[in-house]
């Protein structure tokens, strides 16, 4: 479900399938344990995530808070229109920054 690749110090986590009750714990596990050490700089590529439910939103917020505690950050990339709308309605987009694609999300860590 989740694959991780590194671009410099940034870990790009790509997912396939909906981010729901079933997959959300795996996302938290992947981000909190499966990433390289150091300050967490994570881009969550949601290009192949068609839908996310409350558990998925909670996982995003939780991992963001966890990363921020270590001085890091999680950013979203390539959101589908539906996911974008879900994030907007639930105001999670105010907590987790979203970028149109992985490249711009990774590049934002340079600034």
């Amino acid at each position: 479900m989740f694959s991780v690749e590194s671009q410099g110090a940034v870990d790009v986590v790509s997912a396939e399938g909906p981010l729901n009750q079933e997959n959300a714990p795996k996302l938290i596990e992947t981000i909190e344990q499966g990433l390289s050490s150091g300050q967490p700089m994570v881009v969550f590529n949601m290009q192949e995530v068609p839908l996310l439910d409350s558990a998925g939103l909670e996982a995003l917020v939780e991992t963001q808070q966890s990363a921020q505690l270590q001085g890091g950050c999680i950013k979203l990339a390539a959101l589908t229109p539906l996911c974008q709308e879900i994030l907007r309605i639930t105001q999670v987009d105010e907590i987790v920054e979203a970028y149109p694609d992985v490249k711009s999300a990774v590049g934002s860590f340079v600034k």
Partner: peptide, 10 residues
């Protein structure tokens, strides 16, 4: 030490 330094030092 603050929290960020712990993760920076790995």
């Amino acid at each position: 030490a603050n929290r960020a330094i712990a993760s920076l030092l790995g």
